[in-house]
Structures are given as C-alpha cells and as structure tokens.
Design a protein around this nucleic acid. Structure first.
Lengths: 204, 204
DNA sequence: TTTCATTTCCCCTAAAAGGGGGAATTTTTA
DNA sequence: TAAAAATTCCCCCTTTTAGGGGAAATGAAA
C-alpha cells in the first residue's frame, strides 16, 4: 500500500487524480492540499510515501517547496506535476530533490507507473518530459551582466544612449560600450535583432 | 437529466470532469472524446444537451470546432473550457457560438453551475473569465498592413532599410516610409521600442 | 465611381547607432 | 591574494535612423 499526498490547486486536476487513485488498490490518497502552506502543516502529522506536487501553485514556488519538503523529510518521494515542459525547469526540480516529473497531459497509466516507480527509489519521467530532456540544449546563450540587462531594458523602452547615460549617471561612451558588447556577445548586427533575441529568450 | 459530451485530451482533466459529473444526479456524461474528429463522429449518432469543450485540442483549433458544431447542431449548448485567460480568445469563442467559458482553475461547483446555466439558454462565465472580460481593453493597437508586417519582420531579423529594399525590389525610401509609418502609428520613438511592442503584442 | 487606404517614391537635415581600436578602475571569484 | 570579469571612459569614422515635409500610383471597398 502506497500512501499519497497531493498538492494541487486546480480542482479539475485534483479530482482527476483522486479518481485515478481510487481505481488503484495499491494507492491510498491521504489528502489533497491546495497550497504549499497546507502541505507543510499536513506533513507535521502525517508522512506519505509519495507527494504528487503541482509546481505551479498559488502561494509558493513549487521549486522551493520541493526543496523545503526534501530538507525536512528526505525519505518522502516527490513527483512533480506540471504543464510546463521546459528543459531548464525539469532539470531544476530534479536538482531540488524531485524523483520524477510528469506533465499534466500524461496518460492515466503514466501517473500510476510514476508513483510505483519512485517509491522504489527510481526516477521517473513522463514520455513528453523525457523527450524534452533528450532534446539538444537550446544552445545556451551567453548571460547578460547586471549592468547590461539594466541597459538593455532601457534600450527596449526606447531610450537613447544619451538618455540612459543620464539616468545611470555615466558617460554616453559607457552605455555605448555596453551596447556594443551585447551586440558582439550575441552576434547580432543591430538593436532590432538584439531586442528580438532578448525577448524571445526571456533575457528581459 | 442533462446529457453531456466532453471533448478533452488531458486524461487528468477529463477524469476530474467525470468524477464531478458522477456526483451530480442531474448530469449524465455520454462520453469523453479526445479530439475534434472523434466529437464530430460521435455527434452523428448522439446529440447531447451540452458539450464541454477544451479549446486547446491536439487536432483541431477549438475555435473552429465550436463554430462547426454550432453550424451543424445549433440547439446544442457549448461550454468552452480553457487554461487560456485572454480577453480576445474569450470574445472569439463566444462569437463562434459558445454559451459559456470556464477556466481550468474553476471550482467544482462552477462547472456544475455553468452546465445548468447554459441549458437554460443563459450564458455563463467563470469568475476569473468574467473578471478578464470586465478588464479594460488592452487598448486595441492599430493593425499592421501586409507590407508593414513584412518589413517589420525583416527589421526584427536585423536587416537594414537598404537590405530590405533590395530583397523586396523597392527603393530604400519606400522601406523608410513604412518604417516611419510604423513608428508613428504605434507612437514609439525608435526601432527598439517598436520591436518590443510588436513581439509582446504578437504582431510578428 | 469615387473615396479611402495602401504602397510607392522623393526632398532635406540632425541625431543616433555601429565598427574599429585601446585602456583604467572596480568587483568578483577562484 | 592574484587572476578574471565587469564597469567605466576615450579616440577615430561611417552607416543607419529619425523627423519634417510632400506626392503620385495602385487597390479595395462603399
């Protein structure tokens, strides 16, 4: 018998999970919490084998919550549940102690499989998640320094080098240097291309 | 007794819906379809009172499917279900014949309420959806002409006016005119701001 | 058919950005 | 603490944008 806790704020999804668990004799759902706070309170009294955790919660960031729970109760297995299918996020949650990752588009059997797998101290990734993990890295872009980001945001807001320099109390040549640096480090020819790249890659 | 059909490709959600419907004696779920195609086939044999339709489907665009179904079977009420909370989308689906709109974060009672409301030929919007609808319009932006969009895309790709002119076999002055026009119509000072606005508002 | 919007092209000047260097001073970080 | 990275500033010069006008030709819609 595997004891479960669910952290999920969408009633539709948590009802779905409950229905799936009820059909599985080996699974016993101890309760459904809508927030991270509720989970931490519940854990003071009850320790499940597995926590199925939505990482998009209203109160806490799921990534932090995962780490918190793992620090307090290292023996509990955490199965992350998310609509998000970004490689960086999946990696992060695994780093933070999750034993598995399934997407909300997962089939029923996948969820049951995942739970049964993680209690055996084995990792589990849903089909779409492992596909994402195996995709080649979206060519890691160079990172912006603090100052560069600051300036880039102002450029995107339509300020000229002079205006930015005035706001930051530095010389125009400084702003110009940063701008040229950014063009060079992202290998683009002009501001238009830089802004496009920055926005589509969520640099700003 | 209200007869229902569900079109939803996420098992977690459809299981949740099923569980909710089972608890309501007045509701009778005739079946759950994962695709628009399946729905259209099913409708040839069975006519529900209400269709609960996810508008993010794998095969069809939910907006089109809604219109299609309404054209074929005008008496069926359609309740749109979506994670999407954008005013434009909600308006569109209503135009296409949906009687109501609920978000996937809706509470259980909201879904039941919604179904009972739409069968009485009354519209229903979930709490968060009606909040969205009542928000002031995100100031409708002027639309780009075909040529302007074409040029804007090339600007965002880092091409200069001269390069664009060469590609389009027109004079630089023409490209320059379009560029100036766009700056004026969106009331921005330079290309950086224009690109940012265009991307964040999905103009390109 | 007659507007109205779009697309095209032209003039002008000033401002801003881009491209090549180099170099001193702080901050981080290894 | 020493090396690396970030921030700051400077020179040169060229290309590109921006801002102000105007105007003819095409296309679509009323």
């Amino acid at each position: 018998m595997i004891n479960l806790l669910v952290v999920e704020d969408h009633p539709l999804v948590s009802e779905g999970l409950k229905a799936i668990f009820e059909r599985e004799p080996a699974l016993n759902c101890l309760g459904i919490m809508a927030t991270g706070k509720d989970l931490l309170m519940k854990l003071q009294h009850q320790h499940p084998d597995v926590i199925v955790m939505d990482i998009n919660l209203p109160d806490t960031n799921g990534l932090d919550l995962c780490k918190q729970v793992k620090d307090l109760y290292p023996t509990i297995h955490i199965l992350a549940l998310s609509i998000n299918n970004e490689k960086a996020i999946i990696k992060k949650i695994i780093e933070n102690g999750a034993s598995g990752y399934i997407l909300k588009d997962a089939a029923q059997y996948e969820i049951v499989d995942a739970i049964k797998t993680v209690v055996q101290h084995k990792p589990y990734y849903s089909l779409s998640a492992s596909l994402t993990l195996n995709k080649p890295d979206p060519m890691s872009l160079p990172v912006l320094t603090r100052r560069e980001r600051e300036i880039l945001v102002k450029i995107a807001d339509g300020l000229t080098n002079q205006q930015i320099a005035d706001q930051l109390f530095v010389d125009v040549s400084t702003v110009n240097s940063h701008r040229k640096n950014m063009l060079a480090k992202y290998d683009v020819q002009n501001t238009a291309q830089l802004i496009k790249l920055a926005i589509t890659n969520k640099l700003i």
